[in-house]
Deep mutational scan, measured.
Amino acid sequence: TRVETATETAWISLVTALHLVLGLSAVLGLLLLRKQFPAHYRRLRHALW
């Protein structure tokens, strides 16, 4: 049972790390898009919101 708990903890930390990386890359991508293609960014924002 101890090994299972350790594996679960590892999976949870892995998933958390993946979510963090995905969130950060999404934010960075949006910032880059905003900087380089303001028109595209505006259109995207209108489409999303």
Rank of each mutant, 00 (worst) to 15 (best):
H19G: 14
H46F: 09
A6F: 02
A47R: 08
L31K: 04
T16R: 03
V15I: 12
W11M: 05
T16A: 10
L24Y: 00
Y41G: 08
S25L: 08
F37M: 12
R45K: 12
L44S: 02
S25W: 03
T5A: 04
A26G: 10
L18H: 00
Y41R: 06
E8Y: 13
W11H: 08
R43Q: 14
L31G: 06
R42A: 10
W49P: 10
H46K: 06
L33G: 05
V15C: 04
L30E: 00
T5K: 02
A17R: 01
L33K: 06
A47L: 10
L31H: 10
I12G: 06
A6H: 10
A6C: 05
L14A: 11
R43M: 15
A10D: 12
L44V: 07
S25Y: 01
L33C: 13
V21T: 06
L20Y: 04
R45F: 12
L22E: 00
Q36P: 04
P38Q: 15
H46C: 15
I12R: 11
T16K: 04
V27Q: 04
L28W: 14
L48M: 08
L31C: 13
G29L: 07
L22P: 10
F37L: 15
H19I: 14
A39K: 12
P38L: 15
L22A: 13
L31F: 14
L20G: 09
G29S: 08
T1V: 13
R45W: 09
A26S: 03
A47F: 14
H46Y: 06
V21P: 00
T5E: 06
L20W: 15
W49C: 14
A47I: 11
V3Q: 01
R45G: 07
L22K: 02
S25Q: 00
L44Q: 01
L20M: 04
Q36G: 11
E4H: 08
L20E: 00
H40P: 05
Q36T: 05
A6M: 10
V27K: 01
Q36I: 13
L48T: 07
H46L: 11
A17E: 00
T7P: 11
A26F: 06
E8I: 04
L18F: 05
T7C: 02
A17P: 01
L32Y: 11
A6G: 14
H19P: 12
H19D: 00
V3L: 03
R45C: 13
L18N: 01
V3F: 01
R42H: 05
A39V: 10
T16Q: 06
Y41C: 14
T7L: 08
W11A: 09
K35G: 05
K35C: 14
P38G: 15
T9S: 12
R2C: 11
E8K: 09
V21E: 03
F37K: 11
L44M: 05
F37D: 05
R45Q: 07
H19N: 08
V21D: 03
R45S: 09
G23W: 06
K35H: 09
L48A: 08
T1P: 02
L14Q: 00
L48E: 02
W49S: 13
A6R: 07
G29H: 02
R45A: 05
R34S: 09
R42L: 12
A6L: 03
R45H: 07
H40F: 15
G29P: 06
F37Y: 08
V15L: 05
V21C: 06
K35F: 14
V21N: 04
R34P: 07
H19T: 08
L32E: 08
R42K: 07
T16P: 00
Q36K: 15
V21S: 07
T9A: 00
A17W: 04
L31Y: 15
A10Y: 10
L24G: 05
K35M: 12
H40V: 12
R34C: 15
L14K: 07
A47M: 11
E8H: 14
L22N: 01
L48N: 01
A39N: 11
L44G: 02
R2H: 09
E4T: 06
I12P: 10
L24S: 02
V3K: 00
A39I: 10
L18P: 02
T7V: 08
G29N: 00
S13G: 09
A10K: 09
H19M: 13
W11C: 03
L24M: 09
G29A: 08
H19Q: 15
L32C: 14
R45V: 12
L33A: 11
L22T: 08
L22Y: 01
T7R: 09
L22M: 07
T5S: 03
G23A: 05
I12L: 05
R34H: 05
H19R: 06
P38N: 14
R34I: 14
R43I: 06
T1Y: 09
L48K: 04
A39W: 03
V3T: 01
E4P: 02
T1R: 03
T16E: 03
L32W: 06
L20T: 06
T16M: 12
A26L: 14
R43D: 03
T9W: 13
E8L: 03
S13W: 14
V27H: 00
S25G: 12
T1G: 02
W49M: 13
A39M: 03
Q36D: 11
T5M: 10
R43L: 04
W49F: 12
L31S: 08
R42F: 08
R34N: 08
R43G: 07
